[in-house]
Structure formats: structure tokens, C-alpha cells
Amino acid sequence: MTLPNIRLDELGQGESAIIVEIIGEDVVASRLMEMGLIEEEPISMVGRAPMGDPTEYAVRGYRISLRKNESTRVIVRKEC
């Protein structure tokens, strides 16, 4: 069963999802894609920084830190 699409920043601690799309064509979007955030790629949320931002994610077997204004650019779908 597939749930409706959400933004990456809405993912809770330890939750996983599949990337649906990266919004935009600017530097932020292309850098996100260069770092391996590409559609159909699984991503999971590892933990938030003490002050709630940025957030650590696991993608392609490594850990990346994204700010909220970057993670809102990533649309994901949660899978049950």
C-alpha cells in the first residue's frame, strides 16, 4: 500500500521513504541530486540536531545532513 506523498522534512525519526522528486532546477536541487538524492531512491531519517535543524538522513549507504529549507525540496512517499 502506498501512502500520499509528503515532504522529506515531515519524516519522523527512524522512518524510511522513497524519493519521488526534487523540486526546482537551481543549485540546491542539482547539488541534492549530485549527492545521490534521486527519484526512486530509498532514504531514511536518522536524527535531528539538538536545535531541531538540520537533520541527518541515510541515503545510498552514507549519512548526509540537510537543512529544513533543503529537505522541503525533496518529495517522498512512505511505504508500509
Binding site: 543549485v27 547539488r31 541534492l32 548526509i64
Partner: peptide
């Protein structure tokens, strides 16, 4: 705007 903050966190 503030810069992007894509940063790798090594083990």
C-alpha cells in the same frame, strides 16, 4: 539567502 548545508557525516 543562506547557503546550502549539504554535509556528509562520516562514521
Amino acid at each position: 539567502e543562506p547557503a546550502t548545508f549539504l554535509m556528509e557525516l562520516h562514521s
